[in-house]
Design a protein around this nucleic acid. Sequence first.
DNA 1: GAGGTGGCGACCGAG
DNA 2: TCGCCACCTC
Length: 845
Amino acid sequence: MSGALAIAVIECHFVLDRESRSRETVPLTQLPLSRRHPAEPAPDSPSPRPGGIAARALAGAAPAAPETPYLSGLNPEQRAAVETLEGPLLVLAGAGTGKTRVLTTRIAHILATGRAYPSQILAVTFTNKAAREMKDRIGTMVGDLVEGMPWLGTFHAIGVRILRRHHELVGLKSGFTILDTDDQIRLLKQLLTAENIDDKRWPARLLAATIDGWKNRGLSPKDVPAGEGAVFANGKGGTLYAAYQARLKALNAVDFGDLLLEGIRLFRENPDVLAEYHRKFKYLLVDEYQDTNVAQYLWLRLLAQGSKNVCCVGDDDQSIYGWRGAEVDNILRFESDFPGAAVIRLERNYRSTGHILAAASHLIAHNEGRLGKTLFSEGDDGERVTVTGAWDSGEEARAIGDEIEALQRAGHPLSQIAILVRASFQMREFEDRFVTLGLPYRVIGGPRFYERAEIRDALAYLRCVNSGSDDLAFERIVNVPKRGIGDATLKQIHDVARAARVPLQDAVRVLTESEELKPKVRSTLRGLLDMFARWREQSRVLSHTELAEIVLDESGYTEMWQKDRSAEAAGRLENLKELVRSMEPFENLGGFLEHISLVMDVDNGAGEDAVQVMTLHSAKGLEFDTVFLPGWEEGLFPHQRALDDQGKAGLEEERRLAYVGITRARASARIYFASNRRIHGLWNSTLPSRFLDELPDSHVKVEESRGGMGWGGSGYGGSSYGESRFDRAGGSFGSSSYSTPGWQRAQSQREGGFNAGAGNVGAGRGGARGAHGSTHGSTHGSPPLIEGTLVASSTGAPSTFSRGERVFHVKFGYGEITGIDGNKLTVQFDKAGEKRVLETFIEKA
DNA sequence: GAGGTGGCGACCGAG
DNA sequence: TCGCCACCTC
């Protein structure tokens, strides 16, 4: 791209939902209401007089069944949660206790008993994935009826839906655009430049995060406490926030935060509008309530004041969005926020085996300030949670790849296998490996399809066609491919647009009719406008996919990449094709653009039998037979940033994330850690995660990685420990490649046997050895930890080092020991600062 | 205005 | 190590 500020946003147009519209016009008196008082015991027979919808719902479930089939499989608590329909209800549901089932069954129950139309139920989730999942599951119970639920979606999707209907009341024009994070930052950068603020010292990214934080707390510019507004850029924070909001209005745009914040404002300033929604929403349901932030809470509370039939489902142990402003307090305060609320606890776990459940419960017990739940399961103990150490991230990926292949051979469906990573950069290694193995996989989340440059460019073209006033889109593509329109010309266009208060495209028209531009530039711009006009004309007769192909072709955009000699050009062309393909299911261009502004991932390959790769965050609410949990290392998991920014609270949130990860598994949870990982391109030696120490020994099995180089492996379920690379290391690795002091120390220790020496078992060649060692070493030493032995790291044996001692580390140089924790030393290095390192990598200086 | 290069920060997580 | 951005030259 040129230096021109190219800002892209996603243009959306309101698409009338014909179905929901027509439903809403049904007079209330005709509703098939067969109301029952909540106190009344629910009859086991189906709703006595099911109306049309109810009948269809039941038919969709099981036509011939005399009983309400969807209720019969529920335990008493679940059933109570489904049938307590009137008044506020909080369902405290531990992992795997059938939370989603309760939510979906509750919705089916409301529909089946004819208490509300599908369009009168508001059901909110946090992630698109969760929304899709819920929709699918409701669909299996009530059939097509779920298609009539326009108000099932993420907070943001529903927020935008409401704003689109009442845009004029919050000062927006129809077809307003939604900025994503990228757009936001570009816009803020413009503002910072205009204000002469050094964006090195005060990065736009930081300002974006600050503003986002305010929005998460429901604060508009005027509400920001003076002291806080002053934090950014020497007191300009508040002013910049206000300026940013003004700029958004001028561009007819909102950011993600506004989708809720403006909604709150809309409701507060327009009681009649709020009243309309009160009448509309007979039942409100909220998934993952523990993750709501203040803005979401306020928004929800306003809406819930109507029917008061609000059902929130959550688990304080799974609160993992503190960084986004989530207030676990919301769930703790529910009963006072919603007077008369009923609380139902679900503690019976149906998902995981005993070992998995025990391991997860034990881990989460290390957190303070929990509501406290005791999950129990009636199933088998199953297999233990395994912990496997690998030499580096490559070996980790190989080992997991091998295990998955073995599972595949044994007949396990790949779609029931998931790899849950802490950070998305971990995914690449697995992708590489799976490509090599030819193993089908599906990345969920990750580097987002719609954030790729070529996709954003293509979308910008489509947005320009769709709307003549989308300045951000126009700016993005005016010189892509290169047309000789640079900063200077763009500034001219901007000046005209600002003076005449018209969109950029109109300004261009004015300019091309004057003599102000050089002839060449003028004809280029005129040609561009002519193209837009022609495409708009064609859009009336062509399908939107055909139009997209023509636009990409005639604009020269496809050609630009065809001519490109770089390695990734082919991939980009492929992505463009994929983009056109992904438009197919949509009715028209507007509908498509609306969709992608909120759903930044493509749900391609759904249903295909493939390994699921995703972050722990996006795995919440899902479950799989086998779950691989790689990267359990200090700094990565728990993530260093979480510890730095949030301290103990951050650690506890990380621990909850670990809990979420383990509890995704039904039958098998397999944790991995690598002793070496590349961070920012540099290889770092890492320590096994402290969470491994917190797993109960009796429910965990420690294994040696079998994915080592040169070792073929005997396949899953093979004889106990195969020969590992470590066992052969003396030959090929010991002397040449790995001759660091730490390595040699590890070697000598290995030769000394597991129980020899000062008990420094879990050290050296990192974790694999440590992990292996500790199974054997569990008889000696008794670290002050729960259930005896440590799984993977320190041994509790006295350190041979002492505080204040001068030491040397091959990577960090000289330093002084400031702390000792088992075999982990805290060292203040002269040059590298304070680090925690394994004792084995340290030499006395 | 286009294209090349060197320096620097990033890799936490959702919509 | 990679990708972005600022800066430089033509």
